[in-house]
Design a protein around this nucleic acid. Structure first.
Lengths: 211, 211
DNA sequence: TGCGTATAGTGCAAACTTGCATTACACGCA
DNA sequence: TGCGTGTAATGCAAGTTTGCACTATACGCA
């Protein structure tokens, strides 16, 4: 039977796909709500499952862990960075291309500031979530390392530099994000990013040399 | 009430203390052996506890998790870095002091190369251990950030630079370590450290500017 | 030597996580 | 419309991790 094709986002919905999508959103919504009320550790999988109307076992078909409910959407931004790197104007110096890619992501962050701040507060205050977050960032570093190696046309397994560049870029991103979060988003994230990237490009300025 | 510390550091064992030390070593030895034979995930707490002659519950009085058996001793090196930073000749530029501190740790690494290589192989190939490792490194970064702030006489909550410096230093350390591990320790770790630190000091050299 | 206390060790239960087996169901096709 | 197939959902069990309560014991002191 031809289901009412609600002609959503330009693709074939498919009952199965739309159900999955709805279930995923239900889990995310239920979990976030419970986290804010009861805290992350005070919320059990069973409660989330009940609120999302699924079995506890099914939860793990959608998210590898309780932590990932907070980080999954955040993780998809990696693709944006890598995409921004691949499609970026190749006339740029690698470091400036990286800065551009991270500024793109930063713009996203600012546009969803409230959403992200709420999540980040939980992430930062819960060690297990912080750990998972770091694991994600490590995969970011791997991806950026690959992109930089490709750009420089070197092999990252025999040349240490691509990973160092990626690590420095990620450090700049982390430091900027931490600073931005510390003042609850009163400052502008892109400004921090630009500042940090330029500082690294300048060999960390006089900071490094001052005694 | 303080215990009667008889002059020598670690001399007067005390039955209780020596028992604890012996138990801890027994756990570590048993776990490492089992990991090498059966793999990390293939080894259960029950097996480790049986081999170390303790109850499974007691295991967690010595190590917060199975992962930490591999990382605990590795974690104490943080103190060496911070100590090297505090006691380092204050005439040096901060960045060179950092390089010196990391070179000290690198020397330790090389002197126990075989031991560490075996552990690192497990760490790198087991995601849960890698995650715990990253969490440890984050605490390293915090400690280094504090040390640098103190050095520069700035407040790391209002000045973004100490964290950026710490992040860059840790990135240099990570990249060097990864490279050193990749060739099974054929190269010299301190050389990589020096190279990376100098490269950062030079604003990542032409890598950053090349297109 | 014997006693009170602090701490190590243990058992138990709840929650998280995952592999395996089974069931329910959406999809494509005749 | 009905059927076979593949995927989602579920139940179950083992293992990890942690808080709580209880026991055993090493320690310091009289």
């Amino acid at each position: 039977m031809r289901m009412a094709d609600t002609s959503m986002a330009g693709k074939s919905p498919g009952l199965r796909e739309s159900k999955k999508r709805r279930t995923r959103l239900a889990i995310e919504r239920a979990a976030l709500d419970l986290f804010e009320v009861q805290g992350f550790d005070g919320t059990t999988i069973d409660e989330i499952a009940a609120a999302a109307d699924i079995s506890p076992r099914t939860f793990f078909h959608y998210f590898p862990s309780k932590e990932d409910v907070l980080l999954a959407d955040y993780a998809t931004r990696l693709h944006k960075i890598v995409a921004a790197l691949k499609t970026g104007p190749s006339g740029l110096a690698p470091w400036h291309a990286l800065r551009g890619a991270f500024l793109t992501v930063a713009a996203d962050y600012e546009s969803e500031r409230e959403q992200l701040l709420r999540r980040f507060r939980i992430i930062q205050s819960t060690p297990s979530v912080a750990a998972r977050n770091l694991l994600l960032q490590a995969s970011w570093e791997d991806a950026v390392t690959d992109a930089v190696s490709e750009w420089l046309n070197v092999d990252s397994s025999t040349d240490i530099r691509p990973r160092l560049v990626a690590g420095a870029a990620l450090s700049a991103m982390r430091a900027s994000l931490g600073y931005w979060l510390a003042d609850n988003g009163r400052s502008r994230l892109p400004d921090h990013i630009t500042y940090c990237f330029d500082l690294v490009e300048d060999g960390l300025g006089q900071i490094v040399r001052q005694s």
